[in-house]
Structure formats: structure tokens, C-alpha cells
Design a protein around this nucleic acid. Structure first.
Lengths: 111, 111
DNA sequence: CAAGGTACCTTGCGTTGCAAGGTAGCTGTC
DNA sequence: GACAGCTACCTTGCAACGCAAGGTACCTTG
């Protein structure tokens, strides 16, 4: 179900501020079980970087190992806008199939 | 993005009335580009039948080759209810990350 | 009977999500 | 200063899904 949406959510989170990978894992899994393990996020972040949607910067932590921070690029912001439109269309399509599409059932009244 | 959701939508359509495969393809692709080809739906329908969520019945058509009609079983109806809850949780999670989550940004005001 | 539409199905590929496992730095305790 | 445990990164291998492409067969129309 979450196929493709995680990428989208990561871009959305990064559009607000920088995050490092582990932080994203925590956000997305606490949030609502959108994510289940680190094995999802790190390859995804690599893809995003490869595609130029994010840039990275190592930075020291005051309590623990260094962190790799991810920041949205302008390409990434553009992609996010694109995804946003797709998400809304997708969401509306599913919602209408689930809830609203009752008019179409009126055909059934001839059963 | 549509990963997993198509199965859900098919169950929703079948909960209203029987459909045959080709009809589902048309509904889902006209509807909103949820589906792009028959190569998606037929394996999916086979899975649903294997898992006992739908039952099938061949029926002659008055204009063309025979059609295989799919009907929801009680297990299918139960699965649909389950999916419905999952969908709402998923949708709300994504929406809140996208739109509402602005309160969380207030942390940033201390930057 | 040939052509084209309807309706079914399978195969093979690429992508994605995930569990599992692996490395390494930092902190605290003894 | 060694050891345990946490934080944080990453890779590998698997399974599921969506899809394009291709294939079969029926039925209608000319």
C-alpha cells in the first residue's frame, strides 16, 4: 500500500527542514507505521541522491556517531510538487471508489 | 504509488455488484488512471480467488466471447473492511505529513 | 472465410519494501 | 582502558507487485 508514498513523505519532511536518515526512520515509523525498518530508508535516500533530489552533508553529533543530513534540492522541491498532484489524484480516485461512487450503484436498482 | 491499493479498489467494486475482468480494467483505467493494463488485473484476480476472497462464474455474453464474473465472498467482504481501515490510516498519515504537520515545525522557531 | 473486436491469460522485467546482518563511533561503568 | 550498549550508517537477498508484451480463442461483420 505504501509503495511509492514513502519517497513522497520523505521529500515532504525534508521540505520543512534537514533530517538525517535515522531521524527519518523514527519520524515515519512513529508517525503511523508508514515505515518499518532502516532497510527501506537508506536505499531510498541513495536513490534520491543519485537522482539529484536531495543533497547530503556529514555533520558531527554532540552525542553519538556522525550523522548524514539530507536537504532538498530545487529538483527535489519540483518533484515534491509533482508528487503532491499525483497523491491528490490517487487519493481522490480511491476515495471516490470507496465512498462516493454510490450514484453508479443506481444502475443496480433495475436488478 | 498504487501498490496494493488496486486490490483494495477491486474488492470495493465487487462489493457493489459482480464484474468481469475486462470490465474492471475499463472501470479502473477510465476512473482515474488507477490501472494501466490487463497484465495487472488478471494475476490479481487469480490471487484473490486463490485466497478465497472472490468466487467466479463463467457466463455467456450476448455479444462476444464468454465472460468470467467475479463476486465477493464473505471472506472478501471481511478483507475489504480490514483494508478500509488500513486505507484510512494510511491516507491520514500521508495527509498529515503533507498538510497539517505544520505544528511540528514550530520547533524550528528556535533555530 | 477473413478481419477486427472482445475477453481471457501468461511470461519476464524492473521497482519497491523489508528482514537480517554487518560496521563503526560514542558514552558510561567498572 | 576494556567492555557493553546505544546510535547511526549501509548492504544483501528475497518476495510482492505493476506492467508491457505477447499469445489464445470466441464472436460478429462484411
Amino acid at each position: 500500500m505504501r509503495r511509492g508514498a514513502i519517497e513522497f513523505c520523505v521529500l515532504a519532511l525534508l521540505s520543512r527542514r534537514e533530517h538525517y536518515g535515522f531521524e527519518l526512520v523514527q519520524r515515519l515509523s512513529e508517525a503511523d507505521g508508514l515505515l518499518t525498518s532502516e532497510g527501506t530508508i537508506y536505499p531510498l535516500l541513495s536513490r534520491l541522491r543519485r537522482d539529484g533530489l536531495v543533497e547530503t552533508e556529514w555533520r558531527e553529533s554532540t552525542s553519538g556517531p556522525p550523522r548524514k543530513y539530507y536537504r532538498l534540492t530545487s529538483d527535489g522541491a519540483r518533484a515534491l510538487g509533482h508528487y503532491r498532484g499525483q497523491w491528490e489524484q490517487f487519493r481522490n480516485a480511491v476515495n471516490s471508489l470507496l465512498y462516493e461512487d454510490q450514484e453508479a450503484v443506481s444502475e443496480r436498482s433495475t436488478d
